[in-house]
């Protein structure tokens, strides 16, 4: 089964920009830390964070690349509201293969973050069980209000035909 059709290939190089909607905010940071069971005062206590040399409390390291707060999209039929490429691939489930993050500085609650996603590459590979898999690599660049890079998230997703499921 050939997954990498010309129609799918045509998506390579596409780019979507999400302008900043609002500041990340203290509530989002505290909520994220809560969801991780993380009571580090760095994420909830301005005075503590200033003692450590920060301007204010900061976000946990990976919040910026995990949250879909920037996207401001209505949830789709499956409840997903983050960035998504509408690739013309059917009969597959999508699985995360991995992510590579680079960070330039801690994120502050006052940061207004815009995000640009680029679809870097799509390749088809044969799985260990002999079926076809589609590997989709995308890059998100997160910038602050001054346009400076805060984080880069290179993400690899795999489309696996449902009939090949374990």
């Amino acid at each position: 089964m050939a997954l990498l059709s010309a129609a799918v290939k045509a998506w390579i190089g596409r780019e979507v920009h999400y302008p900043a909607v609002e500041e990340i905010g203290r509530a989002s940071i505290r909520y994220f830390a809560r969801a991780l069971g993380d009571d580090n005062p760095l994420y909830r206590d301005d005075a503590f964070a200033r003692e450590q040399g920060y301007e204010s409390l900061v976000a946990p390291p990976t919040l910026v690349v995990e949250t879909c707060q920037y996207a401001d999209r209505a949830p789709d039929e499956n409840g997903y509201a983050g960035h998504h490429w509408d690739l013309p691939v059917t009969g597959c489930r999508m699985i995360r293969a991995g992510n590579a993050y680079e960070f330039t500085r801690p994120v502050l609650p006052s940061d207004r973050i815009s995000v640009t996603w680029t679809l870097e590459d799509i390749v088809e590979r044969t799985s260990s069980k002999g079926g076809s898999l589609l590997f989709v690599t995308s890059v998100a660049r997160h910038r602050d209000g001054a346009g400076d890079l805060l984080a880069v998230n290179r993400e690899m997703l795999v489309y696996q035909p449902l009939e090949a499921g374990e």
Binding site: P41, L42, Q52, P61, T62, I95, N99, Y101, E102, F103
Partner: peptide, 17 residues
């Protein structure tokens, strides 16, 4: 962060499932 304290900065993190 738990290991290295509040002055630590995670600058790269690459993970595979």
């Amino acid at each position: 962060m738990d290991e290295f304290g509040p002055k630590a900065f995670v600058r790269r993190l690459e993970f595979r499932m």
